[in-house]
Design a protein around this nucleic acid. Structure first.
Lengths: 353, 353
DNA sequence: CTGAAAGCGCTTACAG
DNA sequence: CTGAAAGCGCTTACAG
């Protein structure tokens, strides 16, 4: 049979029409409310409304969506096999913000999960986003090709993060890691530190590049020599107790570790090596983070760093997306924006005397 | 204009048909896969598939749903204004399980959030669930009327929790709080406690009733007199230091507080009152929970209780829902089931000597 | 093996 | 002020 809805006992506009003795068109007109129904006789209006009430009519959302072209659904995709609903996950605050604002705007959320059927599925999954009126993209990196073709077809997309590789075509709401990191260097400098080490993980993503770039920018602004602001890129295995000792002997009293990664491997490697070497925080060595400790353990000291306004990024991304979906005018400057991060004071102190 | 989808560059089956040089019907037949497409020439099939791939076609869920009643979307509704993505929230593990299994089955999730447009929206929002093939209901309580009319129309629904008010009509996957709580009483009895107090919050929900019922059942099984297993129902304000002292003077050495609520107000009230009274845990008084401490603070002692298999409940609810959606045969016994909770050993000890 | 046609429940010009 | 009709993008008998 075509359409199993009738069999499901659903009430249609035609049922109301029959009961009220009008046409289905009139029912639709009345039920759509305000503007149009001005042109409908009050008595007719009331009859239809009464009939609708009596049958406890409710519009079929699918039909409604098909006819009007909108479904008030916002897709979310994170380019991962399973959706990062994981508790101690960095993505979590984004989602909370997204969800909050989506609800506030009267939309609902479509979570695209990357079906298990397709293991390395990034690009394969993307087209399914079209089910929604528009979609949010979240994640450290993404499938460029799939995103491009979505954009090409005019599908409204907003990326949560900075991404300029596609020029002005991809709207986004990102965090200003460059400024935040430069400021962090400055803060440490104010505390008295003069030589810095930046420890970055192997993974590269725009957010990582931005952080490192901010480190360089900050050092430059302070007039530091290249050797006073070195960058170590590592998977952690080559940060040995000797490494840390050598830093200190070199007068490098402040280490900045990459934040925003899932496990903060860089910071952890430094902490472990320091512990073995008998180097104490923050008396001997200061450790700061280009971000905050998300799933931070009981009793562990809070590291100096900055907080990324993830929830707010989520909210703003939703607002931007809805503007794009509804065709509201969005000036170019508002299509790509960076939010600033706020300083987080932790256990970092001045250098040992 | 009617239907703005074309303008949005959405690819339709007719686009594929044109590219592949076949009819739209054939495209539909091919895209629907297995059974039917046996009757389609392999070469045609391939041509259509290639064209679909090239255009990165994706079915319009609304059209699909309208025509066939299926779209591989599972709705989730929690009867709250905003979706409980909140960090320390009890609902979180359910969602994690739901998401995981949904992904594994190749479905996607529709999060129904309760639009802010309708404040007291429970029943008003429910019909929107029909956008999905079926839906999961999560929450301590729910809008009975809305749920009933959804059920009446044959819409597949699974409640995460026990709910027998609708008889066998509402399928569910719940937790066996009755047995878990009875066992908890037994465990405390084994430690030497002989007189118990059960502290329950004012809110009532099936999950709360079940816990209290389990307390009664457990006490009865141990042959305790009514006065040895009293129930206090409170918003916390009348649990004073004197209350706690009186319990102890009465020989009531074990307090069981209601778990599973958002803030564990009952347990907190007991803890605060005890602290003021100078009563120590667990030396003077043992405190157990009918559940576990979800967003449990650093340094706070872990309370004895039991863990609710929330994630597994989520997974099983999804599997059940998909069976209902696809029309797989589901024996009555499998339509309503309770999972058991596992004991959690905390700081509770025997009674003071 | 393939296509023309009806239908799912709605919206929206267009006529009257 | 109201209704007949076309169309949204699909599925599914039914003919050929």
């Amino acid at each position: 049979m075509s359409g199993n809805r009738a069999g499901r006992g659903r009430i249609r506009q035609s049922d109301i029409a029959r009961l009220a003795g009008v046409s289905q068109t009139t029912v639709s007109l009345v039920l759509n409310g305000a503007a149009e129904s001005a042109a409908i006789a009050e008595s007719t209006r009331e009859r239809v409304l009464a009939a609708a009430e009596e049958l406890s009519y409710v519009a079929d959302p699918a039909a409604l969506s098909l006819a009007s072209g909108r479904n008030r659904l916002l897709g979310v995709h994170t380019f991962m096999a399973t959706f990062p609903l994981g508790m101690s996950n960095n993505y979590y605050p984004y989602l909370a913000g997204v969800e909050e604002e989506t609800a506030a705007q009267g939309y609902d959320l479509l979570l695209f999960t990357g079906s298990a059927a397709e293991p390395g599925a990034g690009p394969v999954e993307l087209p399914r986003l079209r089910m929604a009126d528009g979609a949010l993209l979240i994640g450290r990196r993404f499938a460029l090709k799939g995103v491009e073709s979505l954009l090409d077809s005019g599908f409204p997309l907003v990326y949560v993060g900075r991404h300029d590789e596609l020029g002005p075509r991809l709207p986004y709401v990102g965090a200003d890691y460059v400024t935040a990191t430069a400021t962090l260097v400055h803060r440490l400098h104010t505390l008295g530190h003069r030589r810095f080490v930046y420890v970055r993980e192997l993974d590269d993503a725009v957010a990582s590049d931005d952080r490192q770039h901010g480190f360089a920018t900050g050092a430059e602004a302070l007039g530091l020599a290249a050797d006073d602001a070195v960058v170590v890129r590592t998977d952690g295995s080559d940060i040995t107790p000797e490494t840390v000792t050598a830093w200190l002997e070199d007068g490098r009293t402040a280490v900045i570790a990459e934040g925003g990664t899932d496990d903060l491997a860089a910071a952890r490697a430094v902490q472990n090596a320091a512990a073995t070497a008998g180097v104490r925080f923050p008396d001997d060595l200061s450790l700061a983070l280009t971000g905050e400790q998300v799933g931070h353990e009981c009793g562990a000291p809070v590291l100096t760093g900055y907080s990324v306004p993830r929830q707010e990024m989520g909210r703003q991304a939703v607002r931007l997306l809805i503007d794009l979906v509804t065709g509201a005018p969005v000036p170019a400057a508002r299509r790509q924006r960076l939010l600033s991060c706020s300083p987080l004071e932790g256990v970092t102190s001045g250098p040992p005397r």
